[in-house]
Amino acid sequence: MIFDEYYIKSLVRPIQDWPKPGVTFRDITPVYLSPKAQRMVADSLIQRYVETEITHIGALDARGFLLGSVLAYELNKPLVLFRKQGKLPSDTLQQAYDIEYGQAVLEVHKDAIPAGASVLLLDDLIATGGTLCAAASLVKALQATIYEAAAIIDLPDLGGSQRLQDLGIPTYTLCAF
């Protein structure tokens, strides 16, 4: 199935003034209501990464889990969960970061990624880049490398992709608003 950026973008629902006034939230849940769109997104990313040196798929809480689990299964790679603070039961590393409307803490299990691993980070979208930068910091703390940070959507006006690239982290998205 050929990827159709315009079709995917037509499914992304803009929610005005959410979660606060002045913010336009890009809701990807309608993409997951369409089996055709799900397959387009997953197949496009699988084809991009099928013959790479990626050793681990890092999925970001929570919408990154949806895509991360599919890619980990299809590429036969371990799935590493980057969770919000207090959600992982074993020993974790933590990284605080700023988000569009506050501050948060991201965690990963200390034994989830071996030194020298090559990690693909996945999320639903790249906004300010805070969550992906926090995940990248955790990957580096575990002495692994980031192959790329990927998402369905880029919001370039918010600067996240540029911020990641400035840190030397390649980015890839399927579409931008």
Rank of each mutant, 00 (worst) to 15 (best):
S34E: 07
L45R: 11
K77F: 15
S10H: 00
A72L: 14
L75C: 10
P19E: 12
S69W: 04
G68P: 00
P21V: 15
R39L: 14
P35N: 03
A42I: 15
R63M: 04
Q47F: 03
G68W: 06
T52C: 13
L60V: 13
Y32N: 01
S44C: 13
A59I: 01
S10I: 08
Q38R: 10
V23A: 10
I15G: 11
T55F: 07
P30G: 10
G22S: 06
P30Y: 05
D17H: 14
K20W: 06
Q16E: 13
F65Q: 04
L75Q: 06
P21Y: 03
P78D: 07
I15R: 11
Y32S: 02
P35D: 03
Q38S: 07
D27E: 06
Y73A: 14
A62T: 10
T29S: 15
L71W: 08
L71Q: 03
S69H: 02
V12F: 04
L67H: 03
R48L: 14
V12A: 02
P35F: 06
P21M: 12
G68R: 05
Y7V: 00
S69F: 07
P14I: 07
V31H: 01
S34W: 03
L67I: 10
I57W: 07
Q16L: 13
G68I: 03
Q47M: 11
N76E: 15
K20V: 15
K20S: 15
Y6L: 10
V41Q: 02
E5G: 05
Q16K: 12
L11H: 09
R48G: 05
Y6T: 00
V23M: 15
L33T: 09
